[in-house]
Design a protein around this nucleic acid. Structure first.
Length: 557
RNA sequence: GCGCCCGUAGCUCAGUGGAUAGAGCACUGGCCUCCGGAGCCAGGUGCGUAGGUUCGAUUCCUAUCGGGCGUACCA
């Protein structure tokens, strides 16, 4: 429990106590206590915490809000012990000024916690699963996959930090139509590279990477498969091709700092009969009918706007039913929460997947789908057009080469997933103040060099007199640090990783301001030690934060 | 047509049922004999439009306009 959270709760419960006291005395007459807020006001002159309770209550008690506020304040107990000043402001806000004492407790707490600062047990060890990227293994990872990777990994880190037991998972679409297509493409390239005539399938994968894959296969087995049965040849090429593609995907993601606990194969759902089982179960529930030779699932009964095919007329199950089987599998593994990160082009899939879970007797509320909008790439101010089919796209690997892992990850989580993302390659590459990543990392490097230049190391934080920190920039920095645990919790629970970059910016800014107005390594020993403590607490916070985002915290730049 | 997301500063984006709506970039001017100037300080414009709910709406609801995506026996 962080200091600021406990402080807020203290204020909250004191207000409640006062209200109940006034109610008992029949000065305020109300039935149910409204759901009021206690928040840190935007404007510092409005104190450390503010509540809107008076405005919410005014109607029921039939008094002007400021009058309600006055009564409430009168009924607060031992106000002087925990506040410096309580005032009524604006149309009826009550502002609590707590003084600075509690702020000084923040720093020793942070230093003692170290890398645990910000962590909590809000999640209580509950099992939670995140599935992200899950790109088709028929090609390389593109910008959209990269955004999903950065978001998914950061969100996983966040949830783990607040005490959830997180499983990170990649679903490999190694079955279905696109694999057939992949096989045809490989086969055509195989013929072509061996000097044979072959038409390349129109719907095939035109990318250069497919050519490279086939070249690798040829260097291994030569023309051995030129004259075998086409079915066997394709089977072999697909197996080899998938192996290489999946290895590539794993390597690229690893370079991006993204590691998975589970790589789940779609094919395995066919092999184990899980898909057949689902279809049977749906049939038993009378949720399946036949039309034009295909089997349809009555998804419209569950909020979808039309029914969906689960088995095609040619007898091959669709991606949809495989995905249902996969999600049932997730629930069977006992996750209390299942989170998917999908691109906006899959949003139509959400309602029917939830419907399918409901049809199978699972609580669809346990399935959260984060839809992220698509990425647009900008170079020299122009949009770079991308298309996977045509093979024209910038890969994750190329992106890392060009702008580096740190900048790429930072940029991807800077935006709300709901927002379209314009990825400005030139800005991401800029080694200047324009680049928000450097701005934050610079603060960390600067701290490292102060600590290095310091004549003494902090040994016993108990002996430091933090009350010597009285400058406005010092107090601002402490307040910002104190916000950190709450920021982490909010970002995690609301699935909002982008809050982290904003906070990072603010924290770095508060530090730079402090640095410019206060000399750390001053001759006064007491003040120097207090400031070193402040600097160290800033370092710990910055470092923990960057770690969550998957960006390095450099000692030097 | 229908469904989902978005519309906030010149640009890229945060944010909130409440008190003066923020940040970065861009533009202008200042700041190191001293811990890293990749820094700091100062400067100004905006919630697409129209209704409704509310003590209070940029936020919630409805309509409308604009952009993206979906609406496959692709995934």
């Amino acid at each position: 429990m962080s200091i600021i959270t406990s402080k807020r709760e203290e204020v909250y419960s004191e207000i409640k106590k006062a209200l109940n006291k006034a109610k008992k005395k029949e000065i305020l007459k109300f039935n149910v206590l409204p759901d009021f807020t206690v928040e840190v006001p935007r404007d510092k002159t409005h104190g450390d915490f503010a509540t809107n309770i008076a405005m919410l209550l005014c109607k029921e008690v039939k008094m002007p809000p400021r009058e309600v506020a006055r009564i409430l304040i009168e009924n607060l107990e031992n106000v002087d012990e925990w506040t410096e000043k309580v005032e009524i402001a604006g149309s009826g806000f009550i502002n609590f000024h707590l003084g600075q004492k509690w702020l000084y407790k923040v720093l020793p707490y942070v230093i003692k916690e170290g890398e645990n600062f910000g962590k909590s047990n809000v999640g209580q060890g509950k099992k939670i699963q995140l599935e992200y990227v899950s790109a088709n293994p028929t090609g390389l990872l593109h910008m959209g996959n990269a955004r999903g990777a950065a978001l998914g990994d950061t969100l996983s880190n966040l949830l783990a930090a607040i005490g959830f037991n997180v499983t990170r998972e990649f679903y490999i679409n190694d079955a279905g139509n696109q694999i057939e297509n992949f096989g045809k493409s490989l086969e055509a390239r195989y013929f072509q590279l061996l000097g044979q005539k072959a038409d390349f399938p129109e719907e095939g994968y035109h990318g250069e990477d497919v050519v490279a894959t086939v070249k690798n296969i040829i260097s291994e087995v030569g023309d051995k498969y030129l004259n075998v049965d086409s079915v066997l040849r394709r089977e072999f090429l697909i197996q080899k091709g998938l192996e290489e593609k999946i290895t590539n995907i794993k390597n690229d993601l690893a370079r991006f700092g993204v590691e998975y606990d589970v790589w789940f194969s779609e094919q395995s759902l066919h092999d184990t009969g899980a898909i057949k089982r689902i279809i049977q179960e749906l049939q038993d529930k009378d949720l399946i009918y036949e039309k034009e030779g295909a089997l349809w699932f009555k998804t419209s009964q569950f909020g979808d706007n039309k029914d969906e095919v689960v088995v095609r007329a040619n007898g091959i199950p669709t991606y949809f039913v495989a995905d249902i089987a996969y999600h049932i599998n997730k629930f069977e593994r006992g996750f209390e929460k299942v989170i998917n990160i999908w691109g906006a082009d899959h949003h139509g899939h959400v309602a029917r997947m939830k419907g399918a879970m409901k049809a199978q007797g699972y609580d669809e509320k346990k399935l959260d789908v984060i839809i992220m909008q698509l990425v647009r790439l900008l170079r020299d101010g122009d949009v770079v057009r991308m298309s996977k089919r045509s093979g024209q796209y910038i890969t994750l690997s190329e992106l890392i080469d060009e702008v580096g892992k740190d900048a790429a990850r930072y940029f991807f989580i800077m935006r709300n997933p709901d927002s379209h993302l314009d990825f400005d390659l030139d800005l991401a590459k800029a080694e200047s103040s324009d680049n928000p990543v450097y701005y934050v990392q610079y603060a960390h490097a600067r701290i490292a060099s102060i600590l290095k230049a310091s004549p003494e190391k902090i040994k016993n934080i108990e002996l430091i007199n933090f009350a010597l920190l009285k400058e406005e920039t010092e107090l601002n920095l402490i307040r910002k640090i104190a916000d950190y645990p709450e920021e982490i919790t909010e970002a995690a629970l609301n699935y909002e990783p982008h809050r982290l970059t904003r906070y990072a910016q603010d924290l770095a800014s508060a530090f730079h301001s402090f640095y410019n107005s206060c000399r750390v390594l001053t001759d006064e020993k007491g003040l120097r030690e207090a400031r070193l403590g402040l600097v160290d607490a800033t370092r710990i916070t910055l470092r923990n934060l960057l770690l969550l985002i998957g960006v390095s915290a450099p000692e030097r730049m």
